[in-house]
Amino acid sequence: MIIQGLAFYLFAAITVAAGVLVISARNPVHSVLFLILAFFNSAGLFVLMGAEFLAMILVVVYVGAVAVLFMFVVMMLDISQAEMRAGFLQYLPLGAMIGFILVMELGIIGGSWVIADNVDKNFVAPIAAVKTTNTEALGNILYTHYIYYFQAAGMILLVAMIGAIVLTHRKRLGVRKQNIGDQVSRHPSDTLEIKKVSSGSGV
């Protein structure tokens, strides 16, 4: 128990500290690296909660794909830190005030939090008493009970793909593209010309 407690505080403290460093680091690349640190520690928190599938997905998707993508974007953009920090002091009082009010409100909400009576009867897909792994439990509902959500999410991704193509794809003239069909269907007789060269006369 005590090791679990210690591990929780370790992961939680590093997550929060890394989160603060993400927004305070001077170098954007360092920000992304701290973000990766925060992701790893959040994954650790998920493992502690017994959600090992989510933990692994967090590492694979967020660290493996999203953070690396961020890294590319950050390196491609020319972000001037000095420019972004201009006016920081000017907006600080207002920002701090809004932040303070938000924290107070969240405190009030959290402090007076009530959970509905018999909440365990409301769950749509309660985890069976029989011990199953996360992956199995998710797999059992994702393509059955949640097929509608799964398909709807697929449609959203389709729209994202169409959107990216519509907004960025341009037809350029004078670009030679590979056409595999043409290549494969080419016949030797289209390109090769066999000449009989009579000896002694040259081509």
């Binding site: 959290g110 007076s112 939090w113 009530v114 509905a116 009576d117 909440v119 365990d120 409301n122 749509v124």
Partner: peptide, 22 residues
């Protein structure tokens, strides 16, 4: 503990006297 509209309606129907700030 649920996202279903029907269940939500039932819960708020049963407990409309003590609704939390949240």
């Amino acid at each position: 503990g649920t996202t279903s509209f029907d269940t939500l309606a039932r819960i708020f129907h049963d407990s409309h006297n003590h609704i939390s700030v949240g």
